[in-house]
Measured scan of single mutants.
Amino acid sequence: TEDARKEAKKIIDNGGSPDEAAKFIKKYGLSEDQARELVKRAL
């Protein structure tokens, strides 16, 4: 979702790792793979 993508970008912009961002956005109901893909797109 757009919200999850924004959250991921915010985490990374604040110095978080892509892994942290992926873990965080899994709470939106995404699978591990979906979360990682979304983080990649957010970069």
Rank of each mutant, 00 (worst) to 15 (best):
G29Q: 02
Y28I: 04
A21R: 04
G16P: 01
K9S: 03
I11F: 12
S31C: 01
K26N: 07
G15P: 02
Y28R: 00
F24S: 15
S31L: 00
L30P: 01
F24V: 15
D19L: 07
R41K: 12
E2A: 10
F24E: 14
A35M: 06
Y28L: 10
D33C: 11
E37W: 00
S17M: 04
A22W: 10
I11D: 01
D13W: 09
R36C: 13
K26W: 03
K9M: 13
V39I: 11
T1C: 15
V39S: 00
E7I: 12
K9P: 01
A42C: 12
E32N: 03
S17N: 06
G29F: 04
K9C: 12
D33W: 07
R41L: 14
G15Y: 04
A42T: 11
L43N: 03
E32Y: 09
I25R: 04
G15V: 02
K23H: 12
D13Y: 07
L30M: 05
K26G: 09
K40P: 01
A8T: 04
K40Y: 12
I11S: 04
K10N: 08
K40R: 12
D19H: 07
A42W: 13
A35E: 03
A8G: 04
S31D: 11
A22Y: 14
I25D: 08
E7D: 12
E20N: 04
S31Q: 01
Y28P: 00
I25V: 06
G16S: 05
G15W: 03
E20Q: 09
A4I: 13
L30N: 01
I25T: 01
K10L: 10
R5A: 12
G16C: 15
D33T: 10
P18I: 14
R5H: 09
A42K: 01
L38D: 01
K10A: 11
N14H: 10
A42D: 03
I11L: 06
L38S: 00
S17L: 06
R36T: 07
L30F: 12
A21I: 15
G29I: 00
T1M: 15
K9I: 12
D33R: 06
S17H: 07
D19N: 05
D3R: 14
D19W: 11
R36V: 10
A35D: 00
I11N: 03
I11T: 02
T1E: 12
K27W: 06
G29C: 11
P18L: 14
L30H: 00
L38W: 00
E2S: 10
K10Y: 09
R5S: 09
T1H: 14
K23F: 07
A22I: 15
G15D: 04
R41W: 12
I11G: 01
E37R: 05
E20I: 04
T1N: 13
Q34V: 09
Q34L: 09
G16H: 07
K40L: 12
L38Y: 01
T1W: 15
L43I: 13
E2G: 08
Y28F: 13
R36Q: 10
I11E: 01
G29D: 04
V39E: 01
E7Y: 06
R36N: 10
K23W: 10
L43Y: 04
D13I: 08
Q34S: 05
G16A: 06
L30K: 01
F24A: 15
Q34N: 01
F24L: 14
F24P: 06
G15H: 06
N14D: 10
K27M: 09
E32D: 13
K40I: 12
P18T: 07
D19S: 10
K23M: 10
I11M: 05
K26H: 08
E2I: 10
K10R: 14
T1L: 15
F24K: 13
A21K: 06
A42G: 04
I12L: 15
A4K: 03
D13L: 11
A35T: 05
K6L: 12
R5M: 15
I11H: 02
I12S: 02
E37T: 04
E20D: 13
N14P: 01
Q34C: 14
S31H: 01
A21T: 05
L43V: 08
S31N: 10
F24T: 14
I12F: 06
E20F: 09
D13F: 10
K40V: 09
I25F: 06
D13K: 11
R41D: 11
K9W: 11
S17C: 11
K23I: 12
D19I: 06
R41P: 02
I11V: 06
L43T: 05
L30R: 00
R5N: 05
A42R: 01
D3N: 12
K27S: 07
K6F: 09
K9A: 07
T1Q: 12
E32R: 00
E20A: 07
A8Y: 06
L38I: 15
L43M: 13
L38E: 04
S31W: 00
Y28K: 00
K40N: 12
K26Y: 07
L38N: 00
K6M: 11
F24W: 11
A35V: 11
N14R: 13
S17R: 02
E7N: 06
I25E: 10
L43C: 12
N14T: 07
E32A: 07
L30Y: 09
E32K: 00
K40C: 14
G29N: 05
A42P: 00
R36A: 11
L30I: 08
D3T: 13
P18Y: 09
E2T: 10
R36L: 12
E37P: 00
A21F: 15
L43S: 04
K40F: 13
R5I: 15
K40G: 09
K26Q: 15
D33Y: 07
G29S: 01
E20P: 03
S31P: 03
D3P: 08
R5V: 15
K40T: 11
K10I: 07
A4M: 13
E2D: 10
R36D: 05
P18W: 11
I12E: 02
D3G: 08
I25P: 05
F24H: 14
Q34W: 03
A21E: 08
A21M: 14
K10W: 12
K6R: 15
A42Y: 14
D3H: 13
K6Y: 07
Y28H: 05
K10H: 09
K40D: 13
